[in-house]
Design a binder for these strands. Structure first.
Lengths: 131, 131
DNA sequence: TTCCTTGCAAATCGTTTGCATAATG
DNA sequence: CATTATGCAAACGATTTGCAAGGAA
């Protein structure tokens, strides 16, 4: 439904996001993309992130910290929210979608999917020991 | 550390929450408690919900819809967010904390816990068919 | 020339907070 | 009396949106 047109802003946002594996927030993305494109506005960043997420080109992550995080890696994988640095890191693990059947077992309605994320300490904060 | 004093407002908030099994938001709680206590303010509702949650007397739920939901049932159980009515319902199922070990298996840092919730359609919306 | 996209600023929304006053122990 | 709690309204932080101007097809 979107007769989408090309835009430099969207390009640089997506490009930047692909270089990062720490799932930055809209604000972090804004500050970084700004360095190459000084005139870009926060609103444009938000608009494009939403557009890209709706198109499935990126993922919008809700890690319970009140801010949305974005991930250019759309392949299925899990995330951990580091309670020490507030960062989000990837977590490779076997698929646990079987929890859906477990949930559906004693449920009258329909279980379409699940959201699962972990919290704890990332390896970086584990080493640096400073907390 | 909290030399907590008694308050009618807190009482009515907790009491109201215990009568509901649909995990209302602060605003819904405010509108309802207001009927018995017309002078209560939204700020007081928020302050008490936070206080009760910190004390473990109630649970604060993040269902990814941008609003906090509250639950007076602190026993371990899961929740489903109904995509049709926007409500939150309880979902009884076997414990799946084993996902923590699965997550920790290939992770360098420390996995302290996980957050899991489901989304789909509640039984009520399933029946009424109107969507 | 369409009409999608942008920059900017104002507007929303949910939630928190400062402050003077009221209620509790 | 010492403090915690309240009501009110202003303040906040993240995200969205209206609008006139700019850029892509």
């Amino acid at each position: 439904m979107a007769a989408r047109k090309h835009s430099r802003q969207r390009d640089s946002i997506l490009q930047f996001l692909m270089t990062r594996k720490d799932h930055p927030t809209a604000d972090i993305i804004y500050m970084n993309v700004r360095q190459r494109n000084p005139s870009i506005s926060l609103g444009t960043v938000y608009r494009n992130l939403t557009l890209l997420a709706e198109n499935g080109e990126i993922k919008r992550l809700n890690m319970g910290d009140g801010v949305d995080h974005f991930d250019a890696d759309t392949s299925p994988h899990y995330h951990l929210f580091c309670e020490k640095c507030g960062g989000v890191v990837d977590l490779k693990m076997e698929d646990i979608d079987s929890v859906i059947e477990k949930a559906a077992a004693h449920f009258d309605g329909h279980v379409a999917g699940h959201v699962t994320y972990f919290y704890g300490t990332c390896s970086r904060c584990m080493e640096s020991g400073d907390f």
